[in-house]
């Protein structure tokens, strides 16, 4: 019973985060300027991170949590570097 509830709820959660990634991809492809694409990349990273946490619940393993933490760190570094590039034209001054 509880496995069935968890199965369907996690499936819905996966579908919703997948749709969120699709919306972010739409903005990344369509986005009129560079800052829109960077914002969409950041949202894409967050949706992928949440999807991996849900996948870790489904599988019952702690490995996916560490992957999610890594994705969060990479999202921060990547977005900050890209925003700095937009502002100054170079990343490391």
């Amino acid at each position: 019973m509880s496995i069935a509830i968890l199965h369907w709820c996690l499936l819905v959660g996966h579908l919703l985060t997948g749709l969120a990634m699709l919306a972010a991809t739409y903005r990344m492809v369509r986005g009129p300027r560079a800052q829109d694409r960077i914002l969409a990349l950041d949202a894409f990273y967050v949706a992928a991170m949440l999807m991996l946490i849900l996948f870790g619940i489904r599988v019952g393993s702690n490995i996916y949590f560490e992957v999610a933490l890594l994705i969060g760190v990479l999202s921060f570094v990547g977005t900050v570097a890209l925003a700095k590039f937009l502002m100054r034209g170079e990343v490391i001054e």
Binding site: W8, C9, V12, T17, A20, L50
Partner: peptide, 25 residues
């Protein structure tokens, strides 16, 4: 009850993420 709580929280989180990205799009 744990399954219900965990399922409801994960669906809610997915819904929030989807609404945020839809707004961004």
């Amino acid at each position: 009850w744990v399954a219900v709580v965990v399922g409801a929280l994960s669906v809610l989180g997915g819904l929030f993420t989807f609404l945020g990205c839809l707004g961004m799009a």
